[in-house]
Simulated assay, not measured.
Amino acid sequence: MLLIIPFHIPYISGKENEYIANVIAKKSFSGIGDYHHKAIQLLKGLTKVESIYLTTSCTSALEIAALALDIQTGDEVILPSFTFVSTANAFALRGAKLLFADIDEHSLNISLQEIERLTTANTKAIVVVHYNGYSDNISQIKEFAQNNNIFLIEDAAQAINGYCNNEHLGTFGDIGCISFHETKNIHCGEGGCILVNNQNLIDKIEHIIEKGTNRLDFLKSKTKFYEWKDLGFSADMDEIRAAFLTAQLEDIQKVTNQRMRNLLHNLSQLQNVPNRLQPDYLPTEKYFAQTNAHILWGLSKNREQLIQNFKTAGITVYSHYTPLHLSSFGKQFYESPLPVTEKVSRQIVRFPVHTKFSI
C-alpha cells in the first residue's frame, strides 16, 4: 500500500500538555491569565510592538480592525482578490465597497501600482496580504497610505516570524493581524492576535475585544466599574489556547529554521525531479530565503495533471485560492479583470514544507 505523505502536520512542541494541565490546576480558563500574559510578552519580544491583543482567530482580528476604523457603508477598501475570504468579509460586514487589486506575479502580493490606480477620495483603507510571510514593497505602500491619509491594515495571517528590512510584518500599518490556525507555522488550533501600531486606536480596540465594554480598564484598576462603551464582540483568546500558544511561541525560531531547511531542500529536489513532477515555474531560492518558510509554491500550466502525478507518487499537493472577485458572492464587487490573479489562481501548486517532511 502506497504511503501518502500529508500536505501539513501541525507542529507540537511537547510542552502543550504540561501548560494546559497548569491551567486546569488553577481552574481559571477565560482570557487574561498567566499564559495569556506570557504569550503576549513573547509576541512583544518577537515583533517589538507594545500593544498586542490575543484573539479567537485572525478572522476576528480583521473584524476588530474594520470596526476600529469605523468603516461605514460606501467607504472604499482596496485589497487583493487573491486571499482568503476573511480578508474581505471583515470589511464587507461593515458595508464597505471592496475594490479588488491585482497582484505581482513573483511575490503574489498586492502591487503599489494597483493601489495607486484604485485610490479615490473615498478610499478609507488599504489591506495588504503578506502571502507566504513575504513582502518587498510594504514600506512604499506605507508611505503612500500616510501621504494620502488612508488607513493601512496588514493581513499578516501567514507571517509569524516574517520580516521586511528586519522589521516584523504586521508592524508597518496602523493594525496588523496574525493567525495561529493549525495550518500555520505555529498554532493553538484556532487563534490569532492583533498588533496595534496606531496609538489612537488602542482604546477603541480594547473596548471591541471586551464586547464593547471598558473591562480592561477595570482589570487595570483604572475605573471602579466597567460599562458598555462601544460596539464590540467576544474576541479574547481563552487561557487554554493561550497556554498551547505559549508552548509554540517558545519554539518559533526552531520551527522557522526547520521549515526553511526543509523548504530549501524540497526546492532543490523539485528542480531535479522527472518532468512529469516539475512545475513550469518555481520562485528562486533568494525569494524563499526572505520568507518565513510557510509555503513552497510553483506554477503549472497543467496543474491538475501535476497534482495527480504527485498523488500517484504518494505526496499530497494542493492548489490555492479561488479569486474573490470571481466567486459567487464576490462577483458583486467585480469591476475589471485581474489578469495576474486569474493566471496564478489557475496555475499555483503548493507542496509540503512542514517540519516532518522532506522530498
Rank of each mutant, 00 (worst) to 15 (best):
E167W: 11
Q41S: 02
K184P: 03
L264P: 12
N262P: 10
L169M: 08
V23K: 09
I78R: 00
H181G: 08
E143P: 05
V317E: 09
R261Y: 15
S107A: 01
H354L: 06
N17M: 13
L219I: 11
E16T: 00
A96N: 02
A68T: 07
F351N: 05
Q278A: 14
A247I: 00
L201R: 06
S51Y: 13
L195N: 02
L270I: 07
F329D: 12
N200P: 08
T284A: 03
I150G: 06
G176S: 01
V196H: 10
G74N: 07
L69I: 11
L219M: 15
T291G: 03
W297R: 07
K224E: 13
S30V: 14
N148T: 02
Q308K: 13
V49M: 08
L267N: 08
Y19S: 02
A25C: 01
E16M: 01
V353Q: 10
E182V: 01
L296P: 09
D236V: 15
E116N: 11
P352M: 05
I178Q: 12
N197E: 06
G212W: 07
E16D: 01
K356D: 14
Q199T: 11
I126K: 00
N257G: 07
Q269K: 14
Y53I: 14
F7A: 03
G212E: 04
T312W: 12
L93K: 15
Y226P: 08
K27H: 09
I315W: 08
Q158F: 14
Y131A: 04
G170H: 04
F82S: 01
N275F: 10
L282A: 08
Y287F: 15
A242R: 03
L201M: 09
N272M: 03
N197Y: 01
I24F: 13
H168N: 06
L43F: 02
R241C: 01
E227A: 13
I103R: 04
I52W: 13
I252R: 15
L99P: 02
L201V: 00
S345L: 02
T341Y: 03
E182N: 11
K48M: 08
N166I: 02
Q278L: 10
P279F: 12
N262V: 12
S345T: 01
E105K: 13
I160T: 14
G176C: 10
D174C: 11
I115R: 00
Y35R: 02
Y287W: 03
K331L: 05
P6L: 03
V129C: 09
G191T: 02
F329Q: 14
E154K: 11
Q308W: 04
N17P: 05
K286F: 08
E210P: 00
T87L: 14
G170A: 03
S30K: 15
V349N: 11
D70V: 05
E18H: 08
I20Y: 07
F172M: 04
T223N: 03
S327W: 06
H187G: 02
I141L: 06
V344M: 09
M260H: 11
D203G: 00
P283Y: 01
I64K: 05
